[in-house]
Amino acid sequence: MGLLSKKDAALITDPFADNNPITIQVLGICSALAITAELKASIVMAISVLFVLGLGNVVISLMRNIIPSKIRIIVQLIVVATLVIIVDQVLKAFAYELSKTLGAFIGLIITNCIIMGRFEAFALANKPWRSFLDGIGNALGYGVILIIVGFFRELLGSGTLLGFPVLGNPIAGEKTGLYALGYENNGFMLLAPMALIVVGIIIWIQRSRNEALIED
């Protein structure tokens, strides 16, 4: 990346692993668990958060010197709520089925702790360009986890990826691929508790590889 200095590039790459919003900072868990039963929903949610966090960081950073400290939470909430309303309306207009699947969780992006967390921790004290990069970086880190969880849950839970059956045809009488060998979909993966366990396993793997992240 020729046009970004080393420090700036770090803003984007750090949240991928070392400072991942979900597994290290423990932010944004709610939506990461609830909507990852389908890979498509995870991707759309990741893109929505990218938009809201990137733009939101820039807006807050531009206003950082004029927001009075006492009402900054309210100002942040208004900025996020407006951006989320835009995302929601765009989704309703161009991807109605998906917006029904995501349901209330698009609205819950407003209270997604990553967004408020990054506003407080970064945007309020840094210039717009760096805030933008920080927002993008954290949203990408969040998106990566979402996509991994969504990938495994959809693949193991319904044998499809993005809606396309990839393990063969599971309908009795025309079984092909893995199903012909006796494989059955693990329906449990589509249910709520498995998302928690999959994220727990991701945390396990991540901390085994990087000992510095282990807690006390």
Partner: peptide, 23 residues
């Protein structure tokens, strides 16, 4: 508990098990 799971990791897994219980 295995070191990488301590703290956050085991909390996730225990919450998952409790969620199964609540089902």
């Amino acid at each position: 508990i295995p070191a990488p799971l301590r703290g956050l990791g085991i909390t996730f897994i225990v919450t998952g098990l409790m969620a199964i219980g609540f089902m």
